[in-house]
Amino acid sequence: MDISRFLFQILPYLMEGIPVTMQLTLLSFSLGLALGSVLAAARVFGSKPLSVFSRSYIEFFRGTPLLVQIFFIYFGLPAVGIRLDAFTASVIAIGFNSAAYQAEILRSAIKSIPEEQYLAAESLGMTTVQTYRFIIFPQAIRVATPALVNEFVALIKYTSLASIIGVAELFRRTEYMVSYTFMPEIYLLAAAIYLAICLPTSQFSKMLETRYAIPGYKRALV
């Protein structure tokens, strides 16, 4: 194998896909976080119908393949007059999908705060809004952080599905290169690039956890 060709032609070509992969990840994660917060709030605070709607949404998006969701939004929606470019369709599909998972992460984090914390806040005369703002949310977000970063790392990899509808992200470029050069080892290179992005992200999560850990709090050994 020609090393210089590998280093100066193939690698740079693949790497041009990294910004697209990261944009897809960041945008769909943010969309998922925003929508997921609303869905979690609907389940925790909402009326019965709202809670049922939120639950159905979550079950639907968790119970159907992401690939089907991408196809539906990109190829299905034009039938009702909604035409999206491949990038936007991917962000929406991955974001809507991630919202279901993020909603569950946030909901279970809120639910993990013991009843006694609410009682203590109430006994001090705090309003419901104050209780959530000062007592529950600050603790819940610490509980949720590792799982949210985990979800972020998962999205980095899921964005490769956008290649199927033609978004020129990292994996799409890998496929071009393989079919152009007939060198399947390029897949390994792509895997290495994904790994190089994901590993520091997981490290970042550990750093966040340590930095914002509640002093004296002993995490249960899992």
């Binding site: 006694e116 914390q117 009682l119 203590a120 806040a121 109430e122 006994s123 001090l124 005369g125 309003t127 000062f134 007592i135 600050p138 603790q139 610490r142 509640i214 004296g216 709090y217």
Partner: peptide, 21 residues
């Protein structure tokens, strides 16, 4: 009313229930 009542009563729990964060 509850806020007024709770502002005039202090409560100490068996398990302390301090805010750990």
């Amino acid at each position: 009313t509850l806020r007024r009542i709770r502002a005039s009563t202090g409560f100490v729990f068996q398990q302390y229930n301090l805010f750990p964060h």
